[in-house]
Design a protein around this nucleic acid. Structure first.
Lengths: 341, 341
DNA sequence: TATATTTGTTCAATCGATTGAACAAAAATA
DNA sequence: TATTTTTGTTCAATCGATTGAACAAATATA
């Protein structure tokens, strides 16, 4: 670091023969300060390369203008896109975000929460880790600051939430598969204790019922939805006595694993087994065959989450909870489109 | 937010009939405070659920214990792994990190730098965006706080740096390709204005020369190394009058694009054209054929970068610059291994 | 016993910006 | 001209924690 001490309002005051408070008010456009001094102060500020001391103003105002964002993984298009859009909106409103990742680990998530609370963020926007079942730390957030959840959230926390209609997503998927003449549809699911995965499972079952299709319990396999989970479970399905003719995977990465196993076993996709993933990760359009998937509108989720947060900040005492549920969109690609062939 | 006002040292002092300063000293283990009061204070602190006000102590101490980390993209295994390891080491030393991404855009990078400086981080750890050629903002960082670079850094900034030996990486790649009887080796390169890519190009040329191979200027194609760049350039190479028999791509994502084009054109990899990428992104082991690549030891880079930073914090006036260069490791997979077949 | 040293705590200033109250000068109104 | 209103600025307290100096009490030393 080269030595260059930052200038303060004191320095500006000294240069202009004013008091620090006059300078502070001028910079904040206080109505009682004359235009003339305001201009003079602002010019001097530029001259002296003045940067307001964030710490002191945050301390005085009791407001940091920082928002913590906790996501499970940064290394996913969905989450990084949501964060990008949250950031865009919040930046325009004078907030800066601190992005942290839980790596899907409960312990890490708790650590991150403690850190953010320590830093005194003005609020936290989060999507919960797969592992998280104990909501104690989220209650802690609620007791100290504002909380808005997206995608992975629990209703019992009773906070603003933005996500898609997971139940309906499954209907879209199953309806499409049925239209492709599939009638033995398996579901590689996420853990039931997480609301979104529970909803997808519920939608899957109801949709099967709607079409009078059998809903076999051992065709719903819960997992962490990592690549290796997709591989393992797909292999398991192939080895089973009755093979499905379609597999609906609750996550794209696991779907990729499943596809690898299918191809390795020389199974024709979608002719023998159709495959559908979830999230519209970019790679789904790059595989051979490309993978059908459900678009979760990450950009919209990010934007709406940020707006819900801003709304909450304006009105912290508001009792009503805002739950925004977006319409999912099924993206049909080669892995489930038998008409193409 | 439920209403629960945080307790301060004042509250603790009131409970115990002490002054705030005594409490502060007790909490900070000041030698002049008796063991008895220290214990009493610490107990009361727990009782009152006291959390030190980060803002005020940072203001007073002139130290935030926050470190800004700027990376080009969060959505890459290399960078997210580096950050993860930086975080691990810094957390153990009482620092918290604020991770931001430039999205490879110069303008965004400048914004992020301004934000971090505003928040008064104690230092910044960065890897530069592809677009960045103007070092003005990095000079600004240097003038205000500590700066440590990793992977993408420029020597003229004259700051601590951790990276791999890019020049040598190219030698490893070329030597291996030559051992596979390739002798028309093209290079899909990054932009020459970035040091690491310049070094890879230099290494590539020197290695070719070492083996008495022709180094054709139009077999070195600079790009942004995105997926579409890899696709476009690979197609270009296929359409050219003289096809290469090996392609060395300076980034894995572009290598994936190149591989897609090769497969779409029914070219046998590695028999007709061998392919090698760079960074050991996880997907390189998942493609068919799997892609050979160069391991940059992201975990080591993260750890060493954090340690260099801590060293610098301990000794801000130190004049000597620490440059740590790690050995690259070539990972040979199917896309370049003709012996396997 | 008188003096020096150690120990435990309080005092008061400080970090930098903000803000309501106070005050003086200028302008408007009676 | 006297009084009220408006305008522009300063004063002083504040946010919460930290820290060197000051002070008093307890203990050690001469």
């Amino acid at each position: 670091m080269e030595n260059k001490k930052k200038s303060t309002i004191k320095d500006i005051a000294a240069v202009l023969g004013l008091t620090p408070s006059a300078v502070s008010k001028a910079l904040n456009n206080h109505p009682r300060i004359s235009e003339k001094t305001k201009i003079a102060v602002k010019e001097a500020a530029i001259q002296l390369d003045y940067q307001p001391n964030y710490l002191s103003s945050a301390l005085r105002k009791g407001k940091s203008n920082l928002v913590g964002v906790i996501i499970p993984r940064v290394n996913s298009h969905f989450f990084s896109s949501v964060v990008e859009n949250i950031e865009k909106v919040l930046n325009l409103n004078g907030y800066n975000i601190i992005m942290t990742q839980s790596n899907e680990l409960y312990v890490k998530e708790c650590q991150e929460i403690d850190t953010l609370l320590k830093i005194q963020v003005d609020g936290i926007i989060a999507s919960m880790a797969n592992e998280t079942t104990n909501l104690e730390y989220y209650q802690k957030i609620k007791s100290k600051t504002e909380l808005v959840l997206f995608d992975r959230g629990e209703e019992e926390l009773n906070v603003d939430y933005v996500g898609i209609d997971d139940y309906k997503s499954s209907h879209l998927v199953v309806d499409h598969l049925v239209s492709q003449n599939c009638n033995r549809i398996a579901h590689i699911a996420g853990f039931k204790h997480i609301r979104i995965y529970k909803e997808r499972i519920r939608g899957y079952k109801d949709a099967l019922e709607k079409w009078n299709l059998e809903s076999k319990e051992n065709w719903i396999i819960e997992s962490n939805l990592r690549l290796e989970d997709g591989r393992r479970i797909m292999q398991q399905l192939l080895d089973s006595s009755e093979r499905p003719d379609a597999v609906y995977v609750a996550g794209d990465i696991a779907a990729l694993g499943a596809l690898q196993v299918l191809l390795e076993n020389n199974i024709k996709v979608p002719e023998e087994i159709a495959l559908i993933g979830f999230s519209d990760e970019p790679f789904t359009s790059l595989t051979q065959p490309s993978i059908s998937t459900v678009n979760q509108h990450s950009d919209q989720i990010g934007k709406l989450t940020a707006e819900a947060f801003l709304e909450r900040m304006k009105n912290p005492k508001k009792k009503t909870i805002n739950r925004i549920i977006l319409e999912p969109e099924l993206i049909i690609r080669q892995s489930s489109n038998r008409d193409l062939k």
